[in-house]
């Protein structure tokens, strides 16, 4: 198993933390993982992206130039990363913020209204977790429970009350692609 995942969106959409949670969860499952952020001026107000590699064997290069999975949270990210996806790869599109249709026909496309679903369950901030739920349901590389376990480890105790909401978001996202 080797998944090379790119996650992209506006700064503030939880793009970086989504990637970190994936990497953390992979580590908890004893998989090899790496997380690389875009850094610099573009993260200040502009687009942000990160790459996560999850593998059963040693990761040769943590740099992802031809992702097997791409998650785009806004339009500029769709434009930038759709062309880079590997043939046969997966593209997850946040249709709440992206009207445009992807053009590629050699990849599988999943359209998730992540912000709308997040608002339905009461908190727009978990749109990233809705997306992640959908991704995990399709790629099966990481158990959703490992994501929740990661949250328990990285969140300070006073914020553990947010974990059920995140669990619900993962669940709703997964339902969208079943």
């Amino acid at each position: 198993m080797l998944e090379e995942i790119v996650i992209a969106g506006f700064g503030g959409q939880g793009v970086m933390s989504m990637g970190q949670l994936l990497a953390y969860a992979g580590m908890l499952e004893n998989k090899q993982v790496a997380w690389i952020p875009s850094y610099g001026p573009e993260m200040r107000g502009g687009t942000a992206n990160c790459a996560v590699t999850i593998s059963n064997t040693e990761i040769s290069s943590p740099l992802v130039t031809e992702p097997s999975v791409c998650i785009v949270m806004n339009k500029p990210s769709l434009d930038k990363f759709e062309p880079t996806i590997k043939t046969g790869g997966l593209l997850f599109v946040n249709t709440s913020l992206i009207d445009a249709k992807p053009k590629r026909e050699d990849i599988s496309i999943y359209e998730i209204p992540a912000n709308a679903i997040a608002n339905e369950i009461g908190n727009s901030k978990v749109a990233n977790m809705v997306m992640l739920g959908a991704v995990l349901e399709v790629i099966k590389a990481i158990e959703p429970e490992s994501i929740l376990e990661s949250l328990r480890k990285v969140l300070p105790p006073q914020r553990h009350n947010l974990i059920p909401l995140n669990a619900q978001a993962l669940q709703k996202g997964a339902e969208m692609v079943r």
Partner: peptide, 10 residues
């Protein structure tokens, strides 16, 4: 380099 500094690995 910048990648090593910014990258997260276990």
């Amino acid at each position: 380099d910048g990648i090593l500094g910014q990258m997260m690995e276990p």
